[in-house]
Design a protein around this nucleic acid. Sequence first.
RNA 1: GGGAGUUUAGCUCAGUUGGUUUAGAGCAUCUGCCUUACAAGCAGAGGGUCACAGGUUCGACUCCUGUAACUCCCA
Length: 871
Amino acid sequence: MTLSKNFEHQINENKWYSHWLDKQYFKSTPDERTPYTIVMPPPNVTGVLHMGHCLNNTIQDILIRQARMKGFNACWVPGTDHASIATEAKVVAMLRERGIAKSSLSREEFLSYAWEWKEKYGGIILQQLKKLGCSLDWDRTTFTMDKDYYDSVINIFMDLYKKGVIYRGKRMINWDVKALTALSDEEVIRKETRQKLYHLNYAIEGTNDFITIATVRPETIMGDTAICVHPDDERYKHLHGKFAIVPLINRRIPIIADDYVAMDFGTGALKVTPAHDVNDYALGQKHQLEVVDVFNDNGTLSEDAQIYVGLDRFDVRKKIAIELEEKGYLIKTEEYTSEVGYSERTDVVVEPRLSMQWWLSMKDISSPALKSVMEEEIKFYPPKFKNVYRHWMENIKDWCVSRQLWWGHRIPAWYHESGKFVVAKNEKDAIALFETEHNISNAVLKQDEDCLDTWFSSWLWPFEVFKGYSNPNNADINYYYTTNTLVTAPEIIFFWVARMIMAGYEYMDVKPFQEVYFTGIVRDKQGRKMSKSLGNSPDLLELIDQYGADAARFGIMISSPAGNDILFDEAALEQGRNFNNKIWNALKLIKMWEARQTHEHNNENEFAINWFENRLSEVSIEVEQMMQQFKLSEALKTIYTLIWDDFCSWYLEWVKPGYEQPIQANVYNKTIEFFTELMQLLHPFMPFISEEIYHQLTERTDDLCVRLYAEKKSPNQTQLDQGLLLKQVISGIRDIRNKQQMKPKDSIKLFIQTENSVVFESLNSILSKQVNAEEISFASDTVPNSFTTVIGKDKFYILTEQPIDLSTQKSALEKELNHLKSFLMSVEKKLSNEKFTQNAKQEILDLEYKKKADAEMKINIIELSLKDMAG
RNA sequence: GGGAGUUUAGCUCAGUUGGUUUAGAGCAUCUGCCUUACAAGCAGAGGGUCACAGGUUCGACUCCUGUAACUCCCA
């Protein structure tokens, strides 16, 4: 069978992924092996694969595949999150396109549309992960609104309510006027926004005097219930206790003093609007101010505003500014930039708003979770996130868990017309409970219309995917939990990671995972975050189509240093594709040898084989260490160099027979063995091409995907050093050939002046092949009319037929000589420093003496050569 | 305003407890090669006062202080 010109990724990806599935390699059930478990951060059920997922899931697949090949029972659990706000928004948009308004539907009708939509489009992302090669146990796919999962969420809500940590309360929340729901602080994105600062005059009651306040929100003045100044502010001391009149609506409001006010900001006088600003609300509570809410749910002005009723808040801002100006209240405006909160989901300006919501008190539940990370019971990589985590946990605020949505887990609270309520699983339980608690019979109860925050379900993920709460102590949860590694983006450290740790301790009594690896954020070449609005997010599936899944995995991993953001550049995928091509060509070369084996034996290739064997051990050990420290990018880089440079550029060239010449069978077999091991090292990173090569190399009954790694012996350092020396000698001589513009076909005669001729004897056959030397011999003295180079302690003379122009070589040697001389000087200076010789450790001293001796010797050799040239 | 982090070659990054031949890699660049595995390639080369200023030390990319720029998080 002839091999294709290049690796055909599309065919191979389909072939191998379905083969792996057929063989059930990704399926895990508890057995006598040690488990290695990862739960995948569930993407939104509405999601499509983007670069962030690609990075995240490639990392997880690398860890899982490596664990599998190390003999662990590897289990990687997939799933999706119902993503209440995002999904509901999509369904609402879909209905709008069909001409259906959400408000015209009942809850049940809406939910049936939502489920229909979910069944049709949900989980596309899981199919896309298969394209990437992810080795997930698909039988374990979980959705956060699966029956059992749903029940667990509700039961946990009830449990926390019983424990007294869930409560109902009117608090200032972030209101999304588009999605018509409360948002948690973490769902609000602050952005620098250019605004106008309006200076407005409020009349002082009973005088002709005015007080000037500065505000960016003139549309809220109808909600003003006080003006506040700093108690020490001389400008306003005479106004303490007086009243001001709100323009346009003529409300009488007190002028109060509080040191909260910054004297140097604006005019030093602050209008207080308790219903529409968090700080004003706190101030209002302190001074017992009235609360006037001038907005409706959707951001239009309410009846209480008295004017502009029904108009949108931003329209009113413009209109009221004009009216205020016309009536003489507006005295000036200035440009002002400040941070404004936007909804993460809908990107509208968030409105602070007083509202009745459900809250989870965080103080007690968070303390074991803080301790666990601080004491490295759970380890964070990179560790810098420990600080971030601590800071948040120590200043934690109560969690608003209710959302004004229909898609999600409906809050199990039941209300009576009297306003009394109970928390219960269903209507029947609720009525029974209500009757005993409140002694009212035949009560008619209505369930809370709201849903729980999405994260209130995802915080159970690590144990509920194994039904650890719904079916306690089952075989799976006992075997797989605590999971091993959580791989996630730092953006959701508070949303998700912290809360999973809390839930783990609260409900399983143990931590949910051993360690958390935080990936970087994927940015574009210019360092901008990838986003739909910028249009800088490439279509991953198209990239996979074009370059192949292995190349995509390579590209994203090679540019992903541990703990840093990654700047994504398509060039990295190209590099990955080129790497595929390189590997494929090495296969083609070796396949050409297959039919040309001979059993005649000689020792010519012994050195190459020994050296590569040691090099392979050395790198395998290095890679293992890097993996343990999550230096995945470095590990891949190391394997890349091993394959491309050591294997292809050196080893294969060293053992390669001449054109159409035979190859010794033992060399051929060793080469197949090496290539196999290289593919095994590479497999977690690039699963498809490695599996294909594994099967191309020789007839196999097993698959690389599940082949166990062999133990590696520690390498022989002498062998490695000799290999390094050989490479340096070859490069050095090639450099001279290059500089003298010799053609590859021009052969040379090589003379080596060395004290170590035994070593070179074993290297000679390779050396002559690699530098095209027709003859290699040893010299005890300088060789006239030759080009010279010094490598280590040895001197090499190159004789050619070409006319010799020594000028380039002379200047090169002089440059080298200068460098060595200044180096020597610095060493000597150090050694003549008594303080150094007294204080430095002996091994450092010895090293310095060695440096000195080596430098002196090299200087000597070079000076001799230069003298010869002159002569 | 508070906190955390970053600053090393044109770009992206390594650099372990201060001493390892006066800083390493990949990409990009330059030179020469279409050499029967590979031009998506081969063989070489060039390129850095380690942000700046002080300090500690026999010795600082590495430790300390300050300055500047950038990034992120929280108000």
